[in-house]
Simulated scan of single mutants.
Amino acid sequence: MPPPTITSPEDLEKLCDKLQSAPIIGIDTEFVSEDTFHPELCLIQVATADVLDAIDPLALDDLTPFWQTMVSGDHVTVLHAGREELNFFLRAVDAVPKHLFDVQIAAGFCSNEYPSSYSSVVNKFVGHQPAKGEQRTDWRRRPLTKAQIDYALEDVRYLLPLHERFTQLLATLERSEWFAAEMLSWQQEVISASSRKDWRRVSGIGKLSSRSLAIVRELWNWRQQEAESRNQPPRRILRDDLLVEIAKRKVDSPDRIMGIRGIERTPAKRKAQELADCVKCGLEGPTERLNGGNRKVELPSQLNLLGQFLAPALGTICRRAEIATSMVGTASDVRELIAYRIGLINGDQHMPALAQGWRSEVVGNVIDELLEGKRSIRINNARAEDPLVFDRVEPA
């Protein structure tokens, strides 16, 4: 027989009663995102010290009792790469659990790996290898087999041991506060992104004029509304390249829009007048601040030499500190820090990531000392994995 799966309101109520008294709860989900506006939730797996079970959302009309139990309790909620799980919470009850612990982020503070797969984290930190074999499952199909449910439960089976292990490691490395700060920042970013009209993520808009960007903004808003009403992925309604082409041409005539090759093969072909109305709104609407927002600060070209010289220091510092470089920052972040320190950007408007919080402690301070001549870089062993050494410079 397959493992127990929650398929009735009565079973869900019993599970919620158990969860209310649990100090730590692991959670994971299985979903399909290819064919719908929001990912389609197909299975919820939960684990406590006494529970290892799965909830079948396709068999239940109302999952509110579960979501409310999870966000109202004072327990720790453990996830791995839990962005989508947080989005399910937000869409269901507009809240997230109080105490979040993402083991992927924790692994980045305890090793050089980030982002790391669940299997890799489990293997490295608790010495087990989660079962494989159902990666290509269509989780919408019913009934689920025992093998499928067993595979899904593997994704939560080790979350509590990982929480225990990382709690110890973070305390030993004196990084518990760093981790807490990163979890709060990550949570706030996910919440913000869930409601942000992020039209700037449309690919191919980098060289568009402000007026064309205004048209992109209007077309993006229309596409989101149309996709949500149809419950389809936005790019299935109108691909990015076609959206950008309409914005480039600035044509507010339905006939001329339909003359763009490729439009006739999209659902948008029946909405040519609405597309034309979007173009008209973009042509007549405001354009101010369109070049700001979330775009990276553009730095002067003379920073290239300093950036190329100091960017390799980022990886060396992180590897020696046993913290994942990709979680700390990028070469672009190093250039921004340099520009900030030598006065080329205003910190009141844009504070570089490497000048803030734990990132400043790990990397920013070292780069500051290099810029100030208080440290020097030399090659210690050209054959070593980390050949660079940062020596303190004694005052003359």
Rank of each mutant, 00 (worst) to 15 (best):
residue 229 S to L: 15
residue 210 S to Q: 06
residue 256 R to H: 10
residue 220 W to V: 06
residue 222 W to M: 14
residue 163 H to L: 06
residue 154 E to I: 01
residue 209 S to E: 14
residue 243 L to D: 10
residue 190 V to W: 05
residue 237 I to S: 12
residue 180 A to N: 07
residue 187 Q to V: 02
residue 236 R to Q: 13
residue 202 V to C: 06
residue 238 L to T: 06
residue 184 L to G: 00
residue 257 I to C: 10
residue 253 S to C: 11
residue 244 V to S: 08
residue 219 L to V: 04
residue 282 G to F: 03
residue 231 N to W: 14
residue 242 L to N: 08
residue 266 T to N: 08
residue 256 R to F: 12
residue 203 S to L: 12
residue 200 R to I: 15
residue 252 D to H: 11
residue 236 R to Y: 10
residue 230 R to K: 14
residue 229 S to T: 15
residue 172 T to A: 11
residue 215 I to F: 10
residue 154 E to P: 03
residue 253 S to G: 09
residue 283 L to C: 05
residue 268 A to R: 08
residue 255 D to G: 00
residue 250 K to T: 13
residue 281 C to N: 13
residue 152 A to L: 02
residue 267 P to E: 14
residue 170 L to D: 11
residue 157 R to G: 01
residue 267 P to D: 13
residue 252 D to T: 10
residue 169 L to D: 12
residue 215 I to L: 09
residue 260 I to Y: 01
residue 194 S to P: 03
residue 269 K to G: 01
residue 178 W to S: 03
residue 221 N to V: 10
residue 149 I to P: 01
residue 262 G to T: 09
residue 187 Q to W: 02
residue 235 R to P: 06
residue 185 S to D: 14
residue 245 E to C: 05
residue 259 G to E: 14
residue 241 D to N: 07
residue 193 A to Q: 13
residue 162 L to C: 04
residue 231 N to C: 12
residue 158 Y to Q: 04
residue 223 R to C: 07
residue 265 R to L: 01
residue 223 R to I: 10
residue 245 E to T: 13
residue 154 E to M: 04
residue 263 I to E: 02
residue 179 F to E: 10
residue 278 C to E: 04
residue 203 S to E: 15
residue 216 V to I: 15
residue 168 Q to M: 07
residue 159 L to A: 02
residue 177 E to P: 00
residue 253 S to N: 15
residue 178 W to L: 01
residue 171 A to G: 08
residue 244 V to M: 09
residue 186 W to M: 06
residue 271 K to R: 11
residue 230 R to P: 04
residue 156 V to G: 02
residue 222 W to P: 06
residue 198 D to K: 07
residue 177 E to M: 02
residue 280 K to L: 09
residue 252 D to V: 07
residue 242 L to Y: 08
residue 252 D to S: 15
residue 275 L to E: 03
residue 232 Q to L: 14
residue 227 A to H: 12
residue 269 K to P: 02
residue 162 L to S: 03
residue 203 S to M: 11
residue 194 S to R: 05
residue 191 I to L: 09
residue 270 R to K: 11
residue 270 R to G: 06
